[in-house]
């Protein structure tokens, strides 16, 4: 396969950035998207150019480090797939592919396709935990949990924190990310004592990071590699309302 890539290049936070076109030849359909970029980068290095910086680590769809907007879609058009798990067989020979970083004010570009997602960490810091120091826990069987609740909590807890939801949201909202954690802990008995204060603190932190508000468009859940459902946001809203009513 031969491809034309249009890639966002930005040497650092203060650089204005621009789209740059590259031709990549002899791409194997069995390559992953990132391997295709590896091949291009190997060439750029040898030619003395600056290779394209992008974040990646596990390359098996679970660490949440990779992420780019491919042809206008966060993580590319294949559903429930991270960029690292996307393979070139889903592209046509001769295709032109546009590659951009996550775009959001709270995710400033560090370099090329690398963005700073530490805002997510600060949302978790605001309350995305159960306060239980090591060694203080009661026996695991002392509190039974309904299987349905445990399963639903798990579904929310599978969020990998990649930020695709923010990238896809027309409002640049982090609601799905925040709601996934709130829902995960809200559904479990262990999360009850801090339930309302957690929701309030995390939503307020999300706001003060500069993320947009949710308008329930569902773009987030459509690109989410783990398919976090939209009703987690309803759960967050409900907890947030209750917290404010108190």
């Amino acid at each position: 396969m031969n491809l034309t890539l249009r890639v966002w290049r930005q040497s650092g936070p203060s650089d204005a950035g621009r789209m740059v076109t590259y031709k990549v030849e002899d791409v194997s359909p069995d390559m992953s998207f990132l391997e295709m970029l590896d091949v291009l980068n190997e060439r750029l290095i040898v030619e003395g150019d600056d290779p394209i910086a992008f974040d990646h680590d596990c390359r098996e769809g679970i660490c949440g480090m990779c992420g780019m907007v491919i042809n206008g879609v966060a993580h590319g058009e294949q559903r429930a797939t991270t960029t690292c798990q996307l393979h070139m067989r889903h592209f046509e020979d001769g295709a032109e592919i546009t590659i951009e970083p996550w775009r959001a004010a709270p995710f400033p570009v560090v370099k090329d396709l690398v963005v700073d997602r530490s805002a997510f960490d600060r949302i978790i810091q605001a309350g995305g935990f159960v306060s239980v120091p090591a060694g203080s826990a009661p026996d695991a069987h002392s509190v039974p949990v309904r299987k349905e609740d445990a399963d639903a909590a798990f579904d929310a807890a599978t969020c990998i924190g990649c930020g695709a939801c923010v990238a896809a949201c027309p409002n640049g909202s982090a609601s799905l990310f925040t709601a996934a954690k709130i829902t995960h802990l809200s559904l479990l008995p262990q999360g009850q004592p801090e339930r309302l204060s957690r929701a309030k603190a995390m939503v307020d932190q999300m706001d003060s990071e500069g993320f947009g508000g949710c308008t329930n468009t569902g773009e987030c859940t459509a690109v989410c590699p783990k398919g976090i459902p939209l009703d987690t946001i309803a759960q967050m809203n409900s907890d947030y309302l209750k917290a404010n009513a108190k």
């Binding site: 907007v69 027309p170 409002n171 947009g212 859940t221």
Partner: peptide
């Protein structure tokens, strides 16, 4: 207004994956 501030740099290409008409 808040949404606009949250995305100061627009995408060159953007394609809706949900029922994109809503916004």
């Amino acid at each position: 207004y808040r949404a606009g501030k949250a995305r100061p740099v627009k995408y060159v290409a953007k394609k809706s994956q949900a029922n994109g008409y809503t916004t």
